[in-house]
Design a protein around this nucleic acid. Structure first.
Lengths: 203, 203
DNA sequence: TATAAAACTGACTAATAGTCACTTTTTGAC
DNA sequence: GTCAAAAAGTGACTATTAGTCAGTTTTATA
């Protein structure tokens, strides 16, 4: 009997309805300014039910981080040029990331809350672990492209794929300035990417 | 009569006593778990007086960010090798940043709360603007060293100092992974720095 | 010494995260 | 169909706490 499976599907579906509501509320008023009652109202559920699906407000927030990462992965993958060098694929990912950020500022912003909320939802949180998985997936993609680049001669042989993947992904993330300097943020990012690409490129 | 000046000094001194207390409380229990009453108690003041010096909890937090940045600058400057190329100075700064992070995890952590709290204390906040100034100062340092590096031949002529400074500083910041991957964070950072340095280096 | 300004106080209010005893719905065995 | 148990849902309630404010004390100055 498929009841258990259906129940599981229905549960995930409810989780998503709640996350839809949470996004609606958080994105329009900001996380700190939004209440669980607001989310419950938007989800057409009672507050108590919210806590049946999410441990607390932090976990709700991490749930949105997970969605954000999944959307970002779509951008990264769509931006990948076909039939090109590993180095170009990494460059493509960097462009995809920027486009993701520009077209989805709220989701990008949600990502930045990751550190602030991950602590509050416990290491056993399903939503936290989903997010961590997505991040590992992205890291794995970068690593794969670094390896390709070394094979196809577009990236220096001296580069260590695993370490480079961590570094590159971290740099892409950090290269969007936290403090607003007087420069255009997209331009700053593109320049940072250029520097990284030059560091990888075979002479 | 120097009364006004003395008063101003005393005010700053009180601010610092309050920030001492806030650090004590926030660093031992975490920002979200700490209350303004805790801080008031630690500062041996009433809660009302706290609000005489800081607009709100967020501004208190940004006050700590400012201290954190000032301490970081000390690390950056101490780590600068004497009589060396611009490129090596940038490398030195990167090492200083890592040491700062390792020796002052709480201050580093406070920095990461910047984005989360800066919004909550208004653009006119004295403490926010102090933090922004410190960050600009660091950016300026990097820019200076890039220029030196171009002059002394350690950095490619094609590098644009202002843009590169933004990129490098952002990358240093971001290169410390937000998500905990399975790698050693210091090692990941050092590799990221290596990549950046290679991207700058004259062939 | 009088007055005004600045600093300080802590009881109070308003807001809200999270709980829990209870109700309703769903499920599957008979 | 019936029933008991499990799951889902409810919303009034509690406990906590950020921020306020009317009143007090201290300090500066004329």
């Amino acid at each position: 009997m498929g009841t258990l499976e259906r129940k599981a599907r229905e549960r995930v579906s409810r989780e998503n309805l709640i996350l839809d509501a949470a996004e609606e509320v958080f994105f329009s008023h900001g996380f700190d300014q939004s209440t669980m009652d607001d989310v419950a109202k938007a989800a057409e559920l009672s507050k108590g039910s919210l806590y049946n699906y999410f441990k607390n407000k932090n976990e709700l927030c991490i749930g949105i981080v997970g969605r954000s990462l999944r959307l970002m992965i779509q951008y990264l993958e769509k931006a990948l040029p076909e039939n090109c060098s590993g180095l170009n694929k990494i460059h493509g990912m960097a462009k995809g990331f920027l486009l993701f950020k520009q077209e989805n500022p709220e989701y990008y912003c949600a990502l930045q809350n990751y550190k602030h909320h991950s602590g509050g939802c416990g290491a056993d949180s399903k939503f936290l672990n989903l997010s961590i998985d997505e991040n590992c997936y992205i890291n794995g993609l970068v690593e794969k492209f670094v390896k390709e680049g070394i094979s196809d001669g577009s990236i220096k042989k001296s580069i260590i794929p695993e370490k480079a993947a961590n570094a590159i992904w971290g740099e892409f993330n950090g290269a969007i300035p936290g403090f607003d300097l007087n420069t255009n943020s997209a331009e700053a990012y593109e320049y940072a990417v250029e520097l990284i690409i030059n560091g990888l490129k075979k002479a």
